[in-house]
Design a protein around this nucleic acid. Structure first.
Lengths: 146, 146
DNA sequence: TATTGTTATACTCTATAACTATA
DNA sequence: TATAGTTATAGAGTATAACAATA
């Protein structure tokens, strides 16, 4: 039958190729995580680092996961001392999650961790290729958020 | 409080942005999977569709997972009647995995499933944006395979 | 003895459903 | 009654360690 090498052929179905690429890179990134923190935790921490103080619901929306999933992520981050929780000023149901000093430090360390796997791989690319990935990242965010 | 942050800022650390993008798109893709098959199974099926006949070890290497993980994926595909296993001609330890007719049919159906979430999103992009994603996909594959 | 693959086990990630507390 | 969040539970995905069969 038709013999499309979907992993390589440039003209082949984009959705299939992009799906494979993302699945495989995602596996790689998860397996390359540090001992201290998982990729899911790091992702939430980045969002918190950008928005400073958020409710669990805002975090879940921002990370595009369901509230129960975020509950577990927050609990693990709290236990690790990377975030704290304080009362919401007006709504007793909600709470405010913020980075601790340790959380901010870890984020800063991650950001400058040039020895990290992905940083190394990116450093091996040309400037043009990094530009392509940068634009792709923006397009992907738009798609994933839609 | 829409993130002004690492997900959007063009000058921000590429590794961090790409990591977030890939994690989020991966979540989306897994949640958008059909009822019939998971993304992990589909990924293995695509590889089998391209390479026709492979041993479990070759499949694991190609998908970049560990052998025990591939054992489970193959078992689930076998149970679903999407792949079959036959004896290796010269090595009794190995076996040969191949698509069944049902597996090939499902793959063909997926490939032409224009109603799928990712296909819809991609169709909304400009030709230029799709070109960027296509090039990014190739770069990502090179990185993930390195 | 080395290689290939499977079984046993455990942990992460995520979801849905049901529940609690507050608005 | 509606909303925000948590708890209970389940299933997918992946890994390491130990094992069996074959080379």
């Amino acid at each position: 039958m038709d013999q499309p090498d979907l992993t390589a052929a440039p003209g082949a179905d984009l959705a299939a190729r992009l799906r494979l690429s993302v699945v495989r890179l995602s596996r790689r990134l998860r397996s390359q995580r540090s001992d201290a923190i998982t990729l899911t935790q790091l992702s939430a921490l980045y969002t918190l680092g950008a928005c400073r103080a958020m409710t669990p619901g805002e975090l879940a929306t921002s990370e595009r996961v369901r509230p129960p999933s975020m509950t577990r992520v927050i609990a693990s981050l709290e236990e690790a001392g990377l975030v704290t929780r304080r009362q919401h000023p007006t709504d007793g149901r909600q709470s405010i999650i913020e980075l601790t000093r340790a959380g901010a430090d870890l984020l800063a360390a991650e950001a400058s961790a040039r020895e990290r796997w992905l940083d190394k791989r990116l450093a091996e690319l040309t400037e043009d290729e990094r530009g392509t990935l940068s634009r792709a990242s923006e397009i992907i965010d738009r798609m994933a958020g839609a």
